[in-house]
Design a protein around this nucleic acid. Structure first.
Length: 718
DNA sequence: GAGCACTGC
């Protein structure tokens, strides 16, 4: 029998206009060749372009770009800003004399699909007048391309070769409200460039919420006279349908159960239309999917006319399963997509009319006092809630069911903490230094990272090395700074070392990886290390399908080696080519690892790292890994768990490691630390090592011990 | 003893 239909009660306050800020019509299969239009159909394209809401602001936009160095465009979903604005600028002559109009996107697929669409509108193939540049795929022509779409990370890379971005006349940062790490870096750098290049125009496309923050940041007018502002704002209305928002009457004790009940309630009482439910992670998604599938079976047994088709969606899902959510269902079937946050920005599913929002999201957090990254289930922001709601109004008016009270909604923060404020800054600092920002403390951050992190350590160490000031710096800051010094990316004055630091910054990887790669040639194992580094960039080498866990685990054991995960990865690449499917390997990931490896090899050649092989000797490889990852070392504790060398923190081997469940090695290293649920700390990518290797590799690092509790540890290490 | 939101260079 079906469970009694929902006891959930919702109420609907005054209708809310969803503040939607994105307009990508994401075609997930963008690799097909674009259609070329003949002049006859071009007329209708012109008409379509004129119908977009942004069109009637055309002259105003061009006037603003002419008059202000920076223009903030608040453009709601479907207004056409991403595709039209660059074309208006092109038509108005902003791309003459070899200049380029650049438009950044936070995601690769978006850059490709938008470039394709704009090329289509202009009746040409992408890669000529309109092009794109993303990592591993440059589809632009240095001579011919006038409008270039690129990822924000790519723009930052380009600044290394061309610090003033001389080839660009205008740069538009799209989706700036998402505040990704690279968007924020680009924003800070562009402000700096604008002071030297008065002719460079910057357009920031953002949500309403942030417009003023961007305006105040970019406005260089200090006179108080608004007539002298250097930054203007323009709002363009969107083209979406209204979404009715409902809240629960009382707080929900268990949002997983509540999601299931709400789906059933919608199915029972609402008209046609697909459902999209947001949850925080894979486990929750699978749980809801399985509960709903049970219910759906019962419902069809009792003769419910309309069927439910329940589909999970998260990034770790195999590609073929992900594609299922885009398939159309017959009118007698209601599609229910149970997704993680991937459905909030990265993908758009057509046909969604009902959204269920649990109010939570899993976010990365960085704890500077432990140097450990963790994933924390956090309440979403209001901006995020409205983005989720907006997913219901893409095709026709929709409804959003929030599994929380209106009172709780009011307590949510206005926007999500920018990535810049919750990430490890070592790579950011290295990049900024490489871009000639000597004093990273003076860098104009749109949202400055917490002062208590490495930045403060840098300042204190740069200005004075007196004991008095050092006492104020906590141990971890010294360690972070020291880590970069030992890696030799920075000297003790905080300057980028040449060549080591300069080269490290050029690698699209964190400093530890770069160090390991650059030294691997002299260690005699660069061929192996480059493969291992590439493999470490993919999230999961192995896949564990929910219904075949045991069979998969059995297959995975076949690749395992006693030394640990790093050499197991090497083993996978050597033996995997046949039978990726049967061995339950991450096919997409392995393909990606191959491209990453190619890029790394090119950089290694550029820096003349000798191509050497350990010829089957594992120790050389492991020592080389320790060289980069010396700061991540642990030894076994009599309790059976591990303790970190740097601060005696309790650690466990992550269940995904091949060393999990085996006789634990005395020492482990090379791992990355993750804090997962219940405040337990885990090591991922673990390798068994010898204690004697650390002292030789990172003596300065562990010497720092004398400032704090590490002293006793160190004597045991060396 | 038991688990990994999502991007990007």
């Amino acid at each position: 029998m079906a469970a009694p239909l929902s006891t959930m009660k919702f109420w609907k306050p005054g209708a809310e206009a969803p503040g939607i800020t994105e307009e990508r019509e994401l075609n997930t299969e963008t690799t097909g060749s674009p259609i070329i239009f003949n002049p006859h159909t071009a007329l209708s394209i012109e008409k379509q372009r004129q119908k977009l809401p942004v069109f009637k602001h055309r002259n105003n936009i061009l006037y603003l770009v002419e008059s202000f160095q920076t223009v903030i465009i608040v453009g709601e979903t479907g207004c056409g800003k991403t595709t039209q604005l660059p074309q208006y600028l092109l038509e108005a002559g902003w791309a003459t004399e070899g200049k380029v109009i650049g438009v950044t996107q936070p995601r690769r697929v978006a850059a490709i699909s938008v470039a394709n669409r704009v090329a289509e509108e202009r009746g040409a193939l992408v890669g000529h007048e309109v092009g794109y540049t993303i990592r591993f795929d440059d589809c632009s022509d240095p001579q011919a391309t006038r409008i270039k779409f690129l990822t924000d990370g790519m723009l930052v890379r380009e600044m290394m070769a061309d610090p003033l971005l001389k080839k660009y006349s205008v740069l538009m940062l799209d989706e700036a409200h998402e505040r990704t790490l690279y968007t924020d870096i680009a924003i800070g750098l562009l402000k700096k460039i604008q002071k030297k290049r008065r002719d460079l125009r910057v357009i920031v496309a953002s949500a309403t919420l942030d417009a003023k923050k961007f305006h105040d940041f970019f406005n260089l007018n200090e006179s108080g006279d608004p007539n002298k502002d250097t930054c203007g704002i323009l709002t363009v209305e969107g083209r979406t349908f209204p979404v009715d928002v409902f809240y629960t009457v009382s707080p929900v004790p268990d949002y997983v159960k509540a999601t299931v009940e709400t789906v059933l309630k919608i199915h029972e009482t609402e008209e046609d239309g697909d459902v999209l439910a947001f949850l925080t992670g894979q486990e929750e998604v699978e749980k809801v999917v399985s509960l709903l599938q049970d219910q759906a079976r019962s419902l069809s047994r009792i003769g419910m006319k309309k069927h439910l088709r329940i589909l999970p969606m998260y990034s770790g899902l195999p590609y073929a399963d992900q594609m299922k959510v885009f398939e159309r269902t017959p009118p007698t079937v209601r599609k229910v997509v149970v997704a993680t946050n991937i459905a909030e920005t990265s993908i758009t599913i057509n046909g969604v009319v009902f959204v269920i929002d649990c109010a939570f999201v899993k976010l990365r957090a960085y704890n500077p006092s432990t140097a450990i990254e963790s994933l924390v289930v956090t309440p979403i922001s209001k901006a995020s809630a409205s983005q989720r709601a907006g997913r219901a109004g893409r095709n026709r008016p929709g409804k959003c069911f929030r599994l929380y009270t209106e009172e709780d909604f009011e307590k949510l923060p206005a926007s999500t903490v920018p990535e810049m404020q919750r990430t490890n800054l070592a790579p950011v600092i290295l990049q900024l230094k490489a871009l000639g920002i000597d004093n990273v403390l003076r860098f104009s951050f749109l949202s400055p990272p917490p002062a208590q992190t490495m930045v403060q350590a840098l300042e204190l160490l740069l200005r004075s090395r007196s004991k008095h000031l050092q006492a104020k710096v906590s141990l971890h800051m010294m360690q972070n700074f020291n880590q970069l010094c030992v890696l030799a990316g920075l000297d003790h004055y905080g300057r980028l070392t040449d060549p080591m630091g300069v080269r490290m910054a050029e690698f699209p990887l964190s400093p530890m990886f770069a160090k390991m790669l650059l030294e691997s040639g002299t260690f005699g194992c660069s061929k192996e290390i480059v493969t291992i580094a590439a493999m470490m960039q993919i999230q999961n080498t192995f896949v564990l399908p929910a219904n075949q866990k045991k069979a998969a685990a059995r297959e995975h054991r076949k690749f395992a080696v006693a030394e640990g995960d790093h050499l197991t990865m090497l083993n996978v690449t050597r033996r995997a080519p046949s039978g990726v499917q049967e061995h339950f390997l991450n096919y997409k990931g392995l393909l990606r690892a191959v491209t990453v490896r190619e890029q790394l090899r090119r950089l290694m050649n550029k820096f003349k790292v000798p191509r050497t092989s350990s010829e089957g000797d594992p120790d050389v490889i492991l020592k080389c890994i320790v060289l980069g990852f010396f700061s991540n070392a642990a030894r076994i504790h009599h309790s059976g768990s591990y303790r970190t060398l740097r601060d005696d923190r309790e650690l466990h081997i992550h269940p995904s490691s091949v060393l999990y469940g085996e006789k634990p090695p005395k020492w482990s290293g090379g791992f990355s630390m993750k804090c997962c649920r219940r405040q337990k700390y885990y090591m991922r990518d673990v390798t068994a090592v010898e204690s004697s290797w650390f002292g030789r590799v990172g003596p300065h690092f562990y010497k720092q011990a004398k400032h704090g509790s590490l002293a006793s540890k160190r004597s045991r290490v060396l």
